[in-house]
Write a protein that binds this DNA or RNA. Structure first.
Lengths: 137, 137
DNA sequence: CTGTATCCCCTATGATACTG
DNA sequence: CAGTATCATAGGGGATACAG
C-alpha cells in the first residue's frame, strides 16, 4: 500500500483547520460526522444492527453494560444522523424496532474495517503498551 | 455487500459483554484499542503522519486548534500503542520527529475507510440531521 | 416495554505559565 | 523547540426514579 495515503495538508484543511470559518471549531463537517460515529457506544450498536433489526430491550440485553439513558441517546443520535430507522409497533405494551438504513449500512461497511483491525491486532497493541510502560519507568 | 457483515452476538461477546470478566468494563481489549483510536485528535494526527513524518511544531501549525497539552498527550498515547515512532535529534535546540510505525500504517489503512466515508457523505448526514430536527418540533 | 427526568460525578480537554 | 505542571471547566456518562 502506498504510504502517501492522503495529502495531509489538503485533508486537514477540511477536517481540521477549516473549522475556524464560522462559529469556531465544531463547525467542521467531517469532524462532526466522525465524532458521532466514534462515540463510546455507536460502533457497538451499529455492529449489532448490522446483523439484524433489534428491539430496544433486546439491545439492552445484548449490551448489558450500557445504561438505559445512553442506549436511548445513542440510538437517537444514530437515527438523527440517518444511520438508523426507528419503527414503533402499536402493540400493548408498545414495541420499537431499530434497523439500519441504507446510509447506515454504507457507513458501517466503512467503519467495519477498523473494528476488524482492532479485533485482529489487539494483542500487538497490548504488547506495545507493555513495552512502552516498561521502558519509561 | 452482504448485510450479515458480522455475527453481532459473537462480536459483542468480545467487544462488549466480555468486559465483565475481570475488573469491570474497560477490560475488553477491542474496546480499549478502538477507543484510543477514536479519540478526538487521534485520527487527525494519524492522517497527518500517514503523509510523512512531522516534527512537533509542524504538527502544531498543521492543526492550529489543538492545545499543546493535547498534542503531547495524543502523540504519547499513539506512541504507547505502537502506532507512532518518536525520534529525538540532539540538535540545539532539540527537535523531535514523529512517524508512523508499520503497525501504525496498518492501522491507518483500516481507519482510512471511515474517514473517507465521512468526507464523501457529510452532506447526506447533514441533510438527515436537518430533516430529523425539523420533524420533531 | 420504551422511554424521560434528575441528579451527580468524573474524565477528557483547554488555558496558562514554567522548564531543559 | 519541545515539552511539563497546574488549575479550571464542560459535558459525557452513570444511577435512580418516574411515566405513557
Amino acid at each position: 500500500m502506498d504510504s502517501r495515503i492522503v495529502d495531509a495538508r489538503t485533508k486537514i484543511e477540511i477536517y481540521g483547520a477549516l473549522s475556524e470559518g464560522q462559529g469556531g471549531l465544531g463547525d467542521c463537517p467531517i469532524r462532526n460526522v466522525v465524532q458521532s460515529i466514534f462515540g463510546k457506544w455507536s460502533s457497538l450498536l451499529m455492529m449489532a444492527l448490522a446483523e439484524r433489526p433489534y428491539r430496544f430491550g433486546e439491545l439492552r440485553r445484548l449490551v448489558p453494560d450500557i445504561s438505559q439513558r445512553m442506549l436511548t441517546q445513542t440510538l437517537r443520535d444514530l437515527q438523527r444522523d440517518g444511520y438508523v430507522h426507528r419503527e414503533v409497533f402499536p402493540t400493548k405494551p408498545p414495541s420499537v424496532e431499530y434497523s439500519l438504513t441504507d446510509l447506515g449500512r454504507s457507513m458501517f461497511a466503512s467503519l467495519h474495517h477498523i473494528l476488524l483491525w482492532a479485533e485482529t491486532n489487539f494483542e500487538a497493541v497490548r504488547a506495545a503498551r507493555t513495552r512502552f510502560d516498561a521502558s519509561e519507568g
